[in-house]
Design a protein around this nucleic acid. Structure first.
Lengths: 210, 210
DNA sequence: GGGCGGCGGATTGTCAACAATCCTGTCGAC
DNA sequence: GTCGACAGGATTGTTGACAATCCGCCGCCC
């Protein structure tokens, strides 16, 4: 297994929950688990530390980063402005094919909510955000959003369990889609920010001081 | 020299212009230059690749990342929304001591422009942005801004040479300061975004298609 | 009984030699 | 003269052994 594959596999393992936040990542264990070399493991750990998925302290080893609620809120705030930027750019550059796909995803989301298929709605949610990022073609923002998203997998999971979220977020998503279809960058950014702001509000309610 | 020191030194060398964009970074050379071990150099290169300062291709070595104008614009767009977020948070959380320091820096900037001390103005510019980030206390945004800033040192340098910039940016900076002192987050964000948007405009004028 | 010092295992950090890969320049064939 | 194969050197990637560090545990002293 090459170092790049090791990094990918380790990242997938962390994101997939094989290694839980706070869990120690011992080089020897990982070497055995992934059937690779220790140097590859060390390189992978170093890379993932740069991505914020792992924290490594000298002579004390690495462990899966534990993101506090306050950090999760910070990260989501940053995601809010980044996705706002991306939505704005998408509205400015969307072509007819992209517009058609946006409309399609919007319809599917509404259908999923009305049918009560929350899991499907969650998948469509990811597809929508990915589609908007693809339309925007903003590599720099895209990379950062992906990186931040990875740091949040744990909290993302908690959020999706909050009851009633799909209903409120559907309307917000439709606002975003409408604004992009209208080629209105300012409205698209505002709608996307409002959407993610409501996620931040939901995060605050998980706090001791809502 | 420890690996952490090596990383710091290599980063400083790249940011300081010792190694120019596109220049190859040969492990053996760096090892000799920094009087350290090859493993430390390799670790440093890997870290800086994660920061976006270096690009490393397997079996083909590492070189200083060359940021195209289009990428510089993307990066600055992201910086615009991030600094906007930070300015907003600063306006929401600034205390009296921070307000006093903001006012002081604002006064110094005006004085520097009126005296034609552009180098001093540039230093104060950095100090102002750093101060705002300190007041906001937003670690996530702060780290990303720092990282993006590093990728732009070359272009930043070009921009500072554009004639007439200090005069126009002074007014924008004062708007930002005024909004933060007024504890008006929305106004602070808008002012900061307007400021950096004008930098983006300046970047566009460097393009073949202004 | 509590705190201090040090021992031992586990783990990470370092190093040097070796292997694999890539690039360059040269030679030969057509 | 140009194209392709091929060797040589330079450079990166990998490995295994060794050194340094940290942590928990035990015994000792007060």
């Amino acid at each position: 297994m090459t170092p790049a594959q090791t990094r990918t596999a380790l990242r997938a393992a962390i994101l997939g929950g094989t290694y839980l936040p706070g869990e120690r990542l011992v080089e020897a264990q990982l070497t055995a688990h992934f059937q690779t070399s220790r140097s590859a493991v060390r390189a992978a750990l170093r890379d993932l530390a740069g991505e914020g998925l792992v924290v490594a302290e000298p002579h004390r080893g690495a462990h899966v980063r534990k993101v506090s609620l306050a950090e999760a809120i910070e990260i989501t705030e940053v995601r809010m402005v980044l996705e706002g930027l991306v939505a704005s750019r998408a509205a400015a550059t969307v072509d007819d094919a992209g517009a058609a796909e946006l409309a399609e995803v919007g319809g599917l989301m509404r259908a999923a909510v009305e049918a009560g298929e929350f899991r499907r709605y969650s998948d469509l949610n990811q597809r929508l955000h990915a589609l908007i990022r693809r339309i925007a073609g903003h590599r720099t923002a895209d990379d950062l959003i992906g990186r931040l998203h990875g740091q949040l997998v744990r909290h993302q999971f908690m959020l999706s369990l909050l009851p009633g979220r799909p209903a409120v977020s559907l309307a917000q998503h439709e606002h975003v889609i409408t604004a992009i279809l209208a080629r209105d960058p300012a409205a698209a950014e505002a709608a996307m920010r409002a959407h993610i702001a409501s996620v931040i509000d939901a995060l605050h309610t998980l706090d001791g001081t809502p």
